[in-house]
């Protein structure tokens, strides 16, 4: 079993069929890579959402605490 093509250029051309083969492989591995990266993006988006929510709930607590403070001294 040895390398089927004489030169790298010949390997690219694959005597005329190269364009089809390379397009298929390119699209396939691009799709697979996209599927591999998607969870990472989803996770980062979720982290940002979570931090955003936590900031809102902290602010709400502060406002409630402030209102509480106003009522107490009366």
């Amino acid at each position: 079993m040895e390398f089927q093509f004489s030169s790298f250029a010949d390997f690219l051309a694959m005597d005329g069929h190269g364009i089809f083969v390379w397009i298929s492989y390119a699209v396939t591995f691009a799709a697979l890579a996209a599927m591999a990266l998607y969870p990472r993006l989803a996770r980062r988006r979720l982290q940002r959402e979570l931090q955003h929510q936590q900031r809102i709930s902290q602010r709400r607590q502060k406002v409630k605490a402030a209102r509480q403070a106003v009522k107490e001294p009366a």
């Binding site: 079993m1 390398f3 089927q4 694959m14 005597d15 005329g16 069929h17 190269g18 298929s24 492989y25």
Partner: peptide, 24 residues
Amino acid sequence: TVWGLGFAPEDAKQGNSYRIIFIH
């Protein structure tokens, strides 16, 4: 991929386009 593209022999009838079989 390397094996299928580079080292597997050409198909008698279809020539090199059959190498797409390895992902199809």
